[in-house]
């Protein structure tokens, strides 16, 4: 909920255009819950922002397509280590699916 209100404030201040959300949790389930919360709102609980969908494109730093957008040396230094422990293909699949739903919803 708190993440959602933070983002809502940024959307109000800056406009939704050009805003993207990037997530770093290595556990695919934790990452997808976070992604769902910041885009579609918290799925399980009611609250002041229930039903408010912010619809920002959401990415994971460990997605192969995100990696390809970042200079290799910096990516290696800052995030490369997590590629050894995280299932990056699975994370990529989950996040492509969430972005796909954003476009069609």
């Amino acid at each position: 909920m708190e993440k959602q209100s933070t983002i809502k404030k940024l959307v109000d201040d800056l406009g939704a255009q050009d805003l993207v959300v990037v997530i770093g949790a290595a556990d695919p389930e934790v990452a997808s819950v976070t992604a769902e919360t910041v885009t579609f709102g918290d799925p399980s609980f009611a609250g002041p922002l229930a039903g408010v969908s912010l619809r920002l494109p959401v990415y994971h730093i460990l997605e192969p397509e995100v990696k390809s957008a970042i200079p290799a040396e910096i990516y290696e230094e800052q995030a490369g280590f997590l590629e050894l422990v995280a299932d990056t293909e699975e994370i990529g699949r989950i996040f492509r699916e969430i972005r796909g739903r954003l476009e069609t919803a």
Partner: peptide
């Protein structure tokens, strides 16, 4: 782009 980052 303007990036909002939630790390772990």
């Amino acid at each position: 782009k303007k990036a909002i980052i939630f790390g772990d």
